[in-house]
Design a protein around this nucleic acid. Sequence first.
RNA 1: GGCCCGUUCGUCUAUCGGCUAGGACAUCUCCCUUUCACGGAGGAAAGACGGGUUCGAUUCCCGUACGGGCUACCA
Length: 511
Amino acid sequence: MENINVRVRFAPSPTGGLHLGGVRTALFNYLFAKKNNGKFIVRIEDTDQTRFVAGAEAYLLNCLEWCGIVPDESTIHSGNHGPYRQSERKELYQKYAQQLIDEGKAYLAFDTPEELSEMREKFKSAENPSPQYNAALRMQMRNSLSLSDADIKQLLADKTPYVVRIKMPENETVVFTDMIRGKLSFSTALCDDKVLLKADGMPTYHLAVVADDYLMEISHAFRGEEWLPSAPVHILLWKYLFGLDKMPQWAHLPLILKPDGNGKLSKRDGERLGFPVFAMNWTDPATQHTMDGFKERGFLPQAFVNMLAMLGWNDGTDREIFSMDELIEAFSIERIHKSGAKFDYEKAKWFNHQWILRLPTDAYLTEVDEIFNKKGMPVRDIEKLKHACQLVKDRCTSLHDFYDQAFFFFKTPTNIDTASIKEKWTEHKRIFFETFLDKLTTVEWSATAMEALFKTIAADQNIKVGELMLPLRIMLVGSKFGPGVFAIAELLGKEETTKRIQTTLQLLEVI
RNA sequence: GGCCCGUUCGUCUAUCGGCUAGGACAUCUCCCUUUCACGGAGGAAAGACGGGUUCGAUUCCCGUACGGGCUACCA
């Protein structure tokens, strides 16, 4: 079989981290590559020097690594197709641009940005709100097709800045097969003369994507649906430069939509609706504004990946829970959907809960420990934390919930909800708990033994057990939540349990 | 405006011409639980519309509507 080289391309920008759509594109690329024993290549471009941010490359790869999406080749991990940065490959693109010019497939355009917006203003109408630089208009602009040779020479001699534009054929039909959508056709008459090389000598995406994919022997390329309209330009460039037989197979992935209303999910939606949109947190270097990622919100990478995979793909059965290996095993590109999917944070949390239950506690103990540390409650006894996690995992949807659900194991509650019990508090109950405390010193320290003792004393003293359970819970936990009370007591230990009961008894005395 | 893509419960989706339209999230009811959850059982909830093709269309075709994407020297 031919070599399978699947690539995903990123262009980091300072305003945003790695969003859901980006991770999902990478994920599908990765699944496809692994499924077919191919290579997964991550390309991170410094497409625009002014926008490129130091640290962005490492950030992107960290995010992918957290997700378990590990590239075989990347800008940082390197491979044998370097150099990877666009700025270091400048001459290559210029060479291809020149080739196109020589063959009459592209031309030089000297129009200034002002002239371009002037043109757009001038030709703008109700029927045509966005006039294109195309066959109909290019002869009215200042370019190597409309100007005389002498003029062009003079402009070049004066070092007038220019761009290279593709000369779109007047009326040709470009046909190609998308792996997800099937056969698609576009008329070149509707595409404009896209800029291939910018005035600073750097390529636009259109030229770069074609040249890079060729040089790096890419066989398959997945990207977002938003690229579909410019696909004909890329197909044409492949035809002109390298031949369609060498062109990678395309797959245009559906978009991830905002949960409410319509449209592409944006980072603003996350802030507005209170959920993360990035894999890991990202600080905008300009504003120093940090946005949480799924990782920081207490998501497990397994759950995050699982959730993303199910947003636009399924295996045709009712199964929803997949590990990365299982995804690779089950993945098939034919089953990727064509339509966009609205992101549902509730469902994302459900996936996380499922993975919290499924994974052994050890898989996330370090993260939970860190969360306790950040809350200012360092856990000295990691084994105890582990037990606590096992006790409360049923009721945790995020890793942060472990703190809310288990903090009382590590710190005596300061707010005792005595209000809930004081109305029904009696002298009998006080006597009961004093007896219980007394006998506790002799009993074997286990939940079952304690429960038996508790019930025996209750029977002896003729008090309903139900009347005593809530008070005991309040004494140990501080309020009305948590796992079984005797299990809590067991983990708290004899000393702490006794102390908490005594403290609350005193509190009730005062009241 | 033009071009392209899409359209099954509120949401994510199953169905590759036979459907009493299945599952999951969310929601509601009940059970379990001497707390809060988990869990279990059940309920309500969908094929945008109009034409074809066919014995039979959610499924295939064509229109219409609606939604989205693109229409930059951004990707």
